[in-house]
């Protein structure tokens, strides 16, 4: 009789090591400063994990981290940003099985397809980094001796209320915001926040500078208004706000510093996107210079 077989009989089944789902702020994984968490359940009602329940102060810290990251990220070359987004896609591909398993309530074949779509979405946006300027910029033929060039520039810090489609939808709102040089603070799906933190692990290992993407889990109704009214946030994506009253309130609060607002709109995440998610968070800068000897 081998020792092994004897041991198998005597030892209890191995207890797995669970992951603590924390926030993702400035490239680090802190717990909510509030110490709060909320129980996340499966679609069948089983307990999955406790997610951090971010507070307004966590949102504030995330905005500060995003602001700090903005000069470096917006100043990076488009080629560099494209490379990093592609790297995120590579890392996601490598964890395909993990994400598929984490997509609660989705049959495994479908889950695999959603992860594939998320990877492809990242690749699609990665390629835009050094093309959007050519497509959305212009050499303007003005009636005078001037060189006149318009080029798109990132708006700044974008608050993103992510949709309930926990991976594909999440990737589909983050990638267009950051590929052009914005930094963002994302409020993950309240119902299904766990993949967002796993995605954060991917982001953290993809050469993405800390603070470019910050992810908060918690209650949308609690966090969104603070981000909508934050005077150092330049734009807000309300895609994930399903309550029309909350959407109206957030849009109204966003008026205080004239944030650019992307209004909620039903989206089919499986379809190939157009440019609007990128252009919503782009400014056009036009530079004039005389032409003379």
């Amino acid at each position: 009789m081998s020792r092994a077989s004897r041991g198998d009989a005597e030892r209890p089944a191995r207890l797995s090591v669970r992951k603590t789902y924390k926030l993702f702020i400035g490239g680090a994984f802190p717990r909510s400063e509030s110490g709060r968490a909320y129980a996340v359940s499966s679609t069948k009602g089983d307990f999955l994990a406790n997610a951090s329940r971010a507070s307004r102060k966590d949102a504030r810290d995330a905005v500060a981290a995003a602001r700090k990251a903005f000069p470096g990220w917006s100043g990076a070359t488009p080629y560099n940003r494209g490379q990093i987004l592609y790297r995120v896609a590579e890392m996601l591909e490598g964890r395909r099985a993990q994400f598929a398993a984490e997509l609660d309530g989705v049959p495994s074949k479908k889950a695999g397809e959603l992860v594939d779509a998320a990877v492809d979405r990242l690749v699609w946006y990665a390629g835009w980094s050094d093309k959007i300027g050519a497509v959305r910029g212009a050499a303007n033929p003005v009636a005078g001796p001037y060189f006149n060039l318009s080029s798109p520039e990132p708006t700044g810090v974008v608050a993103v209320i992510a949709p309930d489609e926990p991976l594909l939808g999440l990737v589909s709102v983050i990638a267009p915001a950051i590929v052009t040089g914005n930094t963002c603070v994302v409020v993950a799906s309240e119902r299904a926040p766990l993949p967002s933190i796993t995605l954060a692990e991917v982001l953290a290992t993809s050469d993405l500078p800390g603070g470019v993407v910050n992810i908060l889990t918690g209650f949308t109704g609690e966090l969104a208004p603070w981000l909508a009214s934050h005077m150092d946030v330049n734009a807000i994506d309300l895609t994930g706000v399903t309550d029309p009253d909350l959407a109206r309130r957030c849009e109204g609060d966003a008026a205080e510093n004239l944030k650019r607002v992307l209004r909620p709109k039903p989206s089919d995440w499986s379809e190939e996107p157009d440019l609007t998610r990128m252009t919503a968070f782009l400014e056009t800068k036009t530079v004039w210079h005389p032409i003379g000897v």
Partner: peptide, 13 residues
């Protein structure tokens, strides 16, 4: 002479 302020042609015109 080269330290004198430049003249922008378009502006001068």
């Amino acid at each position: 002479l080269h330290g004198l302020p430049g003249v922008d042609r378009v502006g001068a015109d």
